[in-house]
Protein backbone atom coordinates (compact mmCIF):
# COMPACT_ATOMS: atom_id res chain seq x y z
CA UNK A 1 0.00 0.00 0.00
CA UNK A 2 1.40 3.36 -1.04
CA UNK A 3 0.17 6.54 0.65
CA UNK A 4 1.02 10.05 -0.47
CA UNK A 5 1.15 12.44 2.47
CA UNK A 6 1.19 16.24 2.55
CA UNK A 7 3.23 18.07 5.19
CA UNK A 8 0.13 18.95 7.19
CA UNK A 9 -0.50 17.42 10.62
CA UNK A 10 -4.16 16.72 9.73
CA UNK A 11 -2.83 14.08 7.33
CA UNK A 12 -2.32 11.79 10.36
CA UNK A 13 -6.06 11.01 10.15
CA UNK A 14 -5.64 9.77 6.59
CA UNK A 15 -2.62 7.67 7.56
CA UNK A 16 -4.56 6.04 10.42
CA UNK A 17 -7.54 5.27 8.18
CA UNK A 18 -5.34 3.72 5.50
CA UNK A 19 -3.39 1.72 8.09
CA UNK A 20 -6.67 0.39 9.47
CA UNK A 21 -7.72 -0.80 6.01
CA UNK A 22 -4.31 -2.41 5.49
CA UNK A 23 -4.46 -4.24 8.83
CA UNK A 24 -8.03 -5.45 8.26
CA UNK A 25 -7.15 -6.72 4.80
CA UNK A 26 -4.11 -8.57 6.15
CA UNK A 27 -5.75 -9.95 9.32
CA UNK A 28 -3.33 -8.17 11.62
CA UNK A 29 -4.16 -8.78 15.32
CA UNK A 30 -5.75 -5.83 17.15
CA UNK A 31 -2.77 -5.27 19.49
CA UNK A 32 -0.37 -5.16 16.55
CA UNK A 33 -2.68 -2.81 14.66
CA UNK A 34 -2.41 -0.44 17.63
CA UNK A 35 1.41 -0.66 17.56
CA UNK A 36 1.57 -0.06 13.79
CA UNK A 37 -0.67 3.01 13.97
CA UNK A 38 1.40 4.39 16.85
CA UNK A 39 4.65 3.84 14.91
CA UNK A 40 3.17 5.51 11.82
CA UNK A 41 1.98 8.46 13.89
CA UNK A 42 5.42 9.02 15.41
CA UNK A 43 7.47 8.75 12.21
CA UNK A 44 5.04 10.66 9.97
CA UNK A 45 4.71 13.41 12.59
CA UNK A 46 8.52 13.75 12.64
CA UNK A 47 8.63 14.34 8.88
CA UNK A 48 5.71 16.78 8.92
CA UNK A 49 7.23 18.77 11.80
CA UNK A 50 10.91 18.78 10.87
CA UNK A 51 11.61 17.87 7.24
CA UNK A 52 10.27 21.02 5.57
CA UNK A 53 11.28 24.16 7.49
CA UNK A 54 10.55 26.34 4.40
CA UNK A 55 6.85 26.25 5.29
CA UNK A 56 5.80 25.44 1.72
CA UNK A 57 3.54 22.58 0.64
CA UNK A 58 5.31 19.28 0.06
CA UNK A 59 4.38 15.68 -0.45
CA UNK A 60 6.15 12.51 0.66
CA UNK A 61 5.61 8.77 0.38
CA UNK A 62 4.71 6.08 2.86
CA UNK A 63 4.70 2.45 1.88
CA UNK A 64 3.33 -0.36 4.03
CA UNK A 65 3.70 -3.97 3.02
CA UNK A 66 3.45 -7.41 4.56
CA UNK A 67 6.18 -9.95 4.06
CA UNK A 68 5.66 -13.23 5.90
CA UNK A 69 5.56 -12.51 9.63
CA UNK A 70 6.67 -8.92 9.11
CA UNK A 71 5.16 -5.57 8.30
CA UNK A 72 7.64 -3.33 6.53
CA UNK A 73 7.07 0.41 6.69
CA UNK A 74 9.07 2.70 4.41
CA UNK A 75 8.94 6.45 4.62
CA UNK A 76 10.68 8.51 1.92
CA UNK A 77 10.80 12.30 1.91
CA UNK A 78 12.84 14.89 0.04
CA UNK A 79 13.12 17.23 3.02
CA UNK A 80 16.25 18.37 4.82
CA UNK A 81 18.56 15.59 6.09
CA UNK A 82 17.04 14.27 9.31
CA UNK A 83 18.16 11.11 11.04
CA UNK A 84 15.72 10.39 13.88
CA UNK A 85 17.98 7.63 15.16
CA UNK A 86 20.70 10.02 16.35
CA UNK A 87 18.58 11.27 19.26
CA UNK A 88 19.63 9.71 22.54
CA UNK A 89 17.16 7.40 24.25
CA UNK A 90 15.33 9.02 27.16
CA UNK A 91 16.37 8.00 30.67
CA UNK A 92 13.32 5.89 31.54
CA UNK A 93 14.55 5.44 35.12
CA UNK A 94 14.63 9.13 36.08
CA UNK A 95 12.29 10.58 38.69
CA UNK A 96 9.07 12.42 37.84
CA UNK A 97 10.65 15.77 38.61
CA UNK A 98 13.68 15.15 36.41
CA UNK A 99 11.96 13.25 33.64
CA UNK A 100 12.12 14.80 30.16
CA UNK A 101 10.09 13.76 27.10
CA UNK A 102 12.65 14.45 24.38
CA UNK A 103 13.32 11.52 22.08
CA UNK A 104 10.39 9.54 23.42
CA UNK A 105 8.65 9.19 20.04
CA UNK A 106 11.45 7.41 18.21
CA UNK A 107 12.28 5.46 21.38
CA UNK A 108 8.74 4.01 21.33
CA UNK A 109 9.15 3.17 17.62
CA UNK A 110 12.36 1.26 18.42
CA UNK A 111 10.70 -0.59 21.30
CA UNK A 112 7.76 -1.70 19.16
CA UNK A 113 9.79 -2.85 16.15
CA UNK A 114 12.49 -5.32 15.22
CA UNK A 115 14.59 -3.10 12.96
CA UNK A 116 14.69 0.66 12.35
CA UNK A 117 17.02 1.89 9.62
CA UNK A 118 17.74 5.36 8.30
CA UNK A 119 19.61 6.33 5.15
CA UNK A 120 20.05 9.44 3.07
CA UNK A 121 20.01 8.46 -0.60
CA UNK A 122 19.85 10.76 -3.63
CA UNK A 123 18.81 13.71 -1.53
CA UNK A 124 16.04 11.80 0.20
CA UNK A 125 15.51 10.63 3.78
CA UNK A 126 14.57 6.97 3.90
CA UNK A 127 13.35 5.44 7.11
CA UNK A 128 12.39 1.82 7.22
CA UNK A 129 10.74 0.10 10.18
CA UNK A 130 10.22 -3.66 10.41
CA UNK A 131 7.55 -4.93 12.78
CA UNK A 132 6.96 -8.60 13.65
CA UNK A 133 3.27 -9.51 13.42
CA UNK A 134 3.70 -12.35 15.91
CA UNK A 135 6.49 -11.74 18.40
CA UNK A 136 8.90 -14.57 19.00
CA UNK A 137 11.59 -13.43 21.41
CA UNK A 138 10.94 -9.76 21.97
CA UNK A 139 8.08 -9.28 24.41
CA UNK A 140 6.80 -6.08 25.99
CA UNK A 141 4.57 -7.39 28.68
CA UNK A 142 2.01 -8.87 26.36
Amino acid sequence: MLIKIKNNIEEINKVCDKAKKFCEKNDIPEKKYHDIVLILDEIVTNVINYAYPDGNDHEFNLEIKKSGNYIIIRLVDNGIPFDPLISTDPDVSSSLKERKVGGLGIFIVKQLSEIVEYSRINGKNQLSVTVAIYNKEKNHGN
Binding site: K31, P90, L96, H140
Partner: peptide, 17 residues
Protein backbone atom coordinates in the same frame (compact mmCIF):
# COMPACT_ATOMS: atom_id res chain seq x y z
CA UNK B 1 -6.16 -1.16 28.32
CA UNK B 2 -3.14 -3.49 28.16
CA UNK B 3 -1.89 -2.08 24.83
CA UNK B 4 -1.86 1.46 26.24
CA UNK B 5 -0.27 0.34 29.51
CA UNK B 6 2.52 -1.32 27.50
CA UNK B 7 3.42 2.09 26.03
CA UNK B 8 3.45 3.76 29.47
CA UNK B 9 5.57 0.92 30.79
CA UNK B 10 8.19 1.01 28.03
CA UNK B 11 8.41 4.78 28.54
CA UNK B 12 9.11 4.25 32.26
CA UNK B 13 5.96 6.20 33.17
CA UNK B 14 4.55 3.33 35.24
CA UNK B 15 7.25 4.05 37.83
CA UNK B 16 6.71 7.79 38.13
CA UNK B 17 2.93 8.11 37.68
Amino acid sequence: PEKIFAVFKMSGFDKIL
